[in-house]
Amino acid sequence: MGPVTEDSGATAAPLLSVRDLSVSYRTDAGPVAALDRLSFDLHAGETLSIVGESGSGKSAASLALMGLLPRNATASGSVRFRGRELLDLSDRELREVRGRRIAMVFQDALAALNPMMTVGAQLAEAVSVHDPSVSRAALRERAVELLDLVGIPDARTRAGQYPHELSGGMRQRVMIATGIANEPDVLIADEPTTALDVTVQAQVLDVLARVQDRTKSAILLITHDLGVVAGLADRVLVLYCGRKMEEAPVEPLFYEPAHPYTRGLLAALPRIDRSTRRLAQIAGQLPSPNERPPGCPFQNRCPHTDERCAESPPPVPVGEGHTAACVRVHEIASVTP
């Protein structure tokens, strides 16, 4: 699956264009940068995956896009959605965008669904918030239709049930149904499968893919799970310490990873087709946010570090739509990871 171009033929302009997005949190120990000058484009209908460890800034990125950062956080830079700057919008204007244009699927569906509302009522609300004129009967039908769409059997009965009466997989499907209730242009899926069993994970990913076929939404898939990425993403963006380390279409990323960090990540994946006694790991530890070295944040753990790494590396092109933020990326390309 390559980036899908819209029927209208508007291929050039990206749906969502993020430039130099930085997020920092005020803490007692001074400001902490969660995201450092992140830039990327999201095109209509494509699936872009943001991959990173805990603390890499994935969640800060998705919260900033939705305008949901906590009060002690500030975002700078630019987030343009269909050419409209989102960071400047008032809360009232943002509410128009949220849920209708840009929707979100949460990781923990049990926590993200209201325990006191039936599943159908929550789906109906997602619709009626943006269009209060829809009749109750129509809302009820829409709720059932949405549950049907995400593959929940006996949707009419399920619509009358409460979240605690559904299984984990079904709850996540309901989450997805809520997300697509208004056929948004962008669906942000924040770790959509992390809380689920492996078998259920596959089903939920399948639902996401099918739903995307139907609604033509672009999906921003935020995850730490490279398996999920391989299954669903068109392009991948690797974050580390709030910085973009590498951006590539999904196949080059897995077959020809350029950045030493990405190589380390892929090498650390347990493989069933290779008999290794020990799992590979990346040496060293994630630097805490206020101890990040100047320049490349990965330099302390990188096997290829030299004196040039003390300066912030620019993104270096390594292939079609493929960049890596590493000054030595061409020198080390021949070295086996």
């Binding site: 939705m66 949901l68 009232r92 509410r95 128009e96 965008v97 949220r98 849920g99 209708r100 929707a103 979100m104 949460f106 923990d108 926590a111 993200a112 669904l113 209201n114 325990p115 006191m116 509302m117 609300e125 997602a126 918030v129 943006h130 809520t178 209730a181």
Partner: peptide
């Protein structure tokens, strides 16, 4: 601070709506 309140904001619900529709029923 629970996620379902965040989720309600994500679908575009306003503050008063969140309090009346999502918080108060949980206080019944």
């Amino acid at each position: 601070h629970q996620e379902f309140v965040e989720a309600a904001r994500v679908i575009g619900a306003s503050g008063p709506r969140i309090v009346v529709r999502h918080l108060l029923p949980n206080l019944t």
